[in-house]
Amino acid sequence: MSKKTNQEKGEPLLGGSRRDFLKQSSLLSAMALTPGPVIKAAEEQWDEKIADVFEKVQVNLEVNGVMHSVKVEPRVTLLDLLREELNLTGSKKGCDRGQCGACTVHVNGVRINSCLSLAVTNTGKKITTIEGLATNDQLHPMQEAFIKHDGFQCGYCTSGQIMSAVALVKEGRTQSREQISEFMSGNICRCGAYSNIVKAIQEVKNSQL
């Protein structure tokens, strides 16, 4: 189906209010008795229109030192904004439910799961992603330590692990192996590189003493 058909024709899309949409969608339910192909066609068009009913919202945020102003649907997560709109694909989508930590980024210096944070709630904030850790060609010490200690295997969780680890050191939660494990528990590594991740963190922590 051509996505722009209605707009190209200059036909008005749905009126813009949620109320209108609800009226129209009851109409859709009423159409449940009409033949299948008709409903299908209708539904396909509706999908386009429905998305337009929910107004886009302006988001202004700083990512890795660069200001961005974009209009997004309210349902767009910070993770999807970073990956799909800003082409910063270092932050990974693992579970997309806040359980795996692959999407960990820093918001105003604090680590969070970007998959559970709506982009619109981050307006005015400073975001740091894995792409923002290195200085020119100089890797962040935590990145160097992960390479040195083999703190990964497949690498999918690694950007999240590193973002979490950088925050962990800043939080001072590196007093013991147990404390590091406990406060890194929001980052799952299914390859099981945990012991090397802990070694990498300990090295960075010790180099700062």
């Binding site: 806040g98 960990t104 680590r111 969070i112 559970l116 944070s117 979490s164 929001g186």
Partner: peptide, 9 residues
């Protein structure tokens, strides 16, 4: 409860 990232949010 939860993880450090979730507790921060």
């Amino acid at each position: 409860g939860a993880s450090p990232q979730l507790r921060n949010m």
